[in-house]
C-alpha cells in the first residue's frame, strides 16, 4: 500500500510523517513517534487502554485509522502534565490509590480528562459512564471514581480563584 503523509498536532506539536493507510493511530503514536504511554490492550476498541483525546473527544486510538487524524489535535498522557506540574487527575490518581498495575491508567486518565474538560461537576454516574469503556482489572474502579471526583473539585477550585 502507498504510504501517505499525515500531518497533525500531537500534544501541541506539529507532526508530519509517512504512514500506511492501514496504520491505526495507536501504532503511529507508539511505534513511529515513540510515545508509549498510550497502551494497547485489545486492538479492537474494547478495553480503552489506548484512549487518547482527538479534537476534544476521547477515542480508542486502536480503531482510529491514522489518516483520520489528519489536521486533528491529539492529546496523549504525555501531553497533559509534567512531573513538577501534574494534571490534577494525575495527582489524584496517585493520592487516592487509583493506580495499581498502571496499564489502564493512561487511557483511564484521558477518558476522565475528556469528561472534565467539558464538565467540572460530574455526578458519580456520569463518571461511571465515562470510564465504562475503560477496563481496569486491578482496582475495582472505586478509587478511580474517587480520584476523578477529587480532580474535578481541584479544577473547580482553581477556576474559581
Amino acid at each position: 500500500m502507498q504510504k501517505k503523509i499525515l500531518k497533525f498536532k500531537l500534544n501541541g506539536e506539529l507532526m508530519e510523517l509517512l504512514v500506511s493507510p492501514s496504520d491505526t493511530l495507536v501504532d503511529v503514536v507508539r511505534d513511529q513517534l515513540g510515545l508509549t504511554g498510550t497502551k494497547k490492550g485489545c486492538g479492537k476498541g474494547e478495553c480503552g487502554a489506548c484512549t487518547v483525546i482527538m479534537n476534544g473527544q476521547s477515542v480508542n486510538s486502536c480503531i482510529v485509522p491514522a489518516m483520520q487524524a489528519m489536521d486533528a489535535e491529539v492529546e496523549t498522557i504525555e501531553g497533559i502534565g509534567t512531573s513538577d506540574k501534574m494534571h490534577p487527575l494525575q495527582e489524584t490518581f496517585i493520592d487516592y490509590g487509583a493506580i495499581q498495575c498502571g496499564f489502564c491508567t493512561p487511557g483511564m486518565i484521558m477518558s476522565a480528562k475528556a469528561l472534565l474538560d467539558g464538565n467540572l461537576s460530574p455526578s458519580r454516574l456520569q463518571i461511571k459512564e465515562t470510564i465504562a469503556g475503560n477496563i481496569c482489572r486491578c482496582t475495582g474502579y472505586v478509587k478511580i471514581e474517587q480520584a476523578v471526583l477529587a480532580a474535578a473539585d481541584k479544577l473547580k477550585a482553581t477556576k474559581d480563584k
Partner: peptide
C-alpha cells in the same frame, strides 16, 4: 502509613515501561 507509592508517579505520567513498550 499511606506513603506515595514508588511506582505511582511514573505510571500516572505514562512514563512507566512495560514489556510491550520495549524496542
Amino acid at each position: 502509613k499511606n506513603i506515595r507509592k514508588l511506582d505511582a508517579l511514573e505510571k500516572a505520567m505514562g512514563a512507566a515501561t512495560f514489556t510491550t513498550d520495549i524496542k
